[in-house]
Amino acid sequence: RERTTFTRSQLEELEALFAKTQYPDVYAREEVALKINLPESRVQVWFKNRRAKCRQ
């Protein structure tokens, strides 16, 4: 699998949801995934990595 490159608009959507909740449920992830045209699994991994970045 190729590394996913997020567009600015995708990142804005993801960061907006992250500001609301660092642990979105599957419904919130699927909703944003549809909105930004990415698989839910990519959204899930983005949140995992974003939380790790936050802890550093």
Rank of each mutant, 00 (worst) to 15 (best):
A19I: 10
E12K: 11
C54H: 14
R3V: 11
D25A: 06
Y23K: 07
P39L: 05
V26K: 14
E40N: 05
V43P: 00
E15W: 02
A19H: 05
E12R: 13
Q10L: 01
C54E: 15
R1I: 15
V32Y: 02
F47I: 05
K35C: 03
R29G: 01
V43M: 15
R3A: 13
T5Y: 15
V26R: 15
V45W: 15
F47K: 02
R8M: 13
I36M: 09
L38S: 08
P39I: 06
Q22V: 07
V32L: 12
S41G: 09
F47H: 00
W46E: 00
L34S: 13
L11I: 15
K20D: 03
K20I: 10
F47V: 04
T4E: 14
K48W: 04
D25L: 01
R3P: 10
P39R: 05
E12T: 13
N49H: 10
T21L: 03
F18L: 05
R51Y: 02
Q22W: 11
P39M: 04
R1P: 10
L38E: 14
E13C: 13
Y27C: 14
E2I: 07
R29D: 00
K48Y: 09
L11S: 06
K48V: 08
C54P: 12
L34Y: 07
R55V: 12
F6S: 04
A28F: 03
R55E: 11
N49T: 11
S9K: 15
T4M: 13
A52C: 09
L17I: 06
V26E: 12
E40G: 05
E12G: 09
K20S: 05
K48C: 10
V45R: 05
E40K: 07
R55L: 12
L14S: 01
E31C: 13
E2K: 09
L38R: 03
T21G: 09
R55T: 12
P24L: 02
L17M: 07
Q56W: 02
Q44W: 07
L38W: 08
Y27R: 14
K20N: 04
Q44T: 12
R29N: 02
I36N: 05
A28L: 10
K48T: 14
T4R: 07
K20M: 07
E12N: 07
R1T: 15
A28M: 10
R55Y: 07
K48F: 03
T21F: 06
E13R: 06
K20Q: 07
Y27V: 14
R8T: 10
Q22R: 13
E31S: 12
E15L: 03
V32C: 11
K20E: 08
C54L: 13
I36L: 10
K53V: 12
R8V: 08
T21S: 07
R3F: 07
Q10F: 02
Y23S: 08
L34Q: 15
E40P: 11
S9E: 07
N37S: 12
A28T: 08
L14A: 00
A16I: 08
Q56T: 11
Q44L: 10
L17W: 03
L11W: 05
E2A: 05
R51G: 02
E12I: 11
A16M: 12
Q10K: 02
D25C: 07
R51Q: 08
S9P: 10
R1E: 05
C54I: 14
T7I: 04
P24E: 00
I36W: 09
R50A: 09
F6W: 08
K48A: 13
K53S: 13
A19L: 11
L38I: 05
Y27L: 15
A28R: 09
P24H: 00
N37W: 03
Q10R: 02
K48E: 09
V43I: 14
V43W: 02
E12M: 12
T5A: 10
Q22P: 09
T4W: 03
Q56D: 15
K35Q: 04
R1A: 02
Q56H: 12
E31W: 04
T21Y: 04
Y23P: 00
K48I: 13
Y27P: 14
R29W: 02
R51I: 04
N37P: 00
R1Q: 07
Y27M: 14
D25N: 08
E2H: 06
V32M: 13
R55I: 14
A33V: 00
E13L: 07
K48M: 07
E15N: 07
D25M: 02
S9D: 14
L11C: 02
A16K: 07
F6Q: 04
R42N: 09
L17D: 01
I36P: 00
N49Y: 08
N37G: 14
R3I: 15
L11Y: 06
Q56P: 14
Y23Q: 08
A19N: 11
Q56C: 04
T5V: 09
E40Q: 13
R50S: 06
Y27A: 15
R50C: 03
N49M: 05
E12F: 11
A33G: 13
F47W: 02
V43K: 01
R51W: 02
V26S: 13
F47A: 00
P24D: 01
V45I: 13
W46M: 01
K48N: 11
A16Q: 06
N49R: 11
V43F: 02
E40C: 12
A52S: 08
L34T: 14
E31R: 14
N37A: 11
T21M: 04
L11Q: 12
L17H: 02
Q56F: 11
T21V: 07
E12Y: 04
V45M: 03
R55C: 06
I36E: 02
P24Q: 00
A28C: 10
E40H: 06
N37F: 03
Y23M: 06
S41Y: 08
N37C: 13
R8K: 15
T7C: 08
K35G: 03
W46R: 01
R1W: 06
A52G: 11
V32D: 01
F47N: 00
N37Q: 06
T4G: 07
A52P: 01
R55G: 14
Q56K: 03
A28Y: 04
T7M: 03
Q44E: 11
Q10C: 02
Y27I: 14
P39A: 08
F6P: 04
A19K: 08
L11D: 10
S9Y: 13
F6M: 10
S41R: 11
R29I: 09
K48R: 11
R42E: 13
E15S: 03
E13T: 13
F47S: 01
Y27G: 13
R55W: 04
L17V: 07
V26I: 13
R3G: 12
T21W: 04
T7R: 04
Q44A: 14
T21K: 06
N37D: 06
R55K: 09
F6N: 05
S9Q: 15
Y27D: 15
W46V: 01
E12C: 08
A28H: 11
P24C: 00
R55P: 06
A16V: 09
A19R: 10
T21C: 06
R1C: 11
A52V: 09
D25Y: 00
K20T: 12
Q10T: 04
A33R: 03
S9F: 10
D25H: 04
K20G: 03
Q22G: 04
V45K: 05
A28K: 13
R42Q: 15
R50Y: 03
E2P: 03
R50K: 10
R50M: 11
I36K: 00
A33H: 00
T21I: 09
T5E: 12
T4N: 08
A19S: 11
R8W: 09
V26Y: 15
Q56Y: 05
Y27S: 15
L11T: 10
E13I: 07
E12S: 14
T7H: 06
Q10D: 04
R8P: 12
I36T: 12
L11M: 09
R3M: 12
R51S: 04
A33Q: 01
D25Q: 02
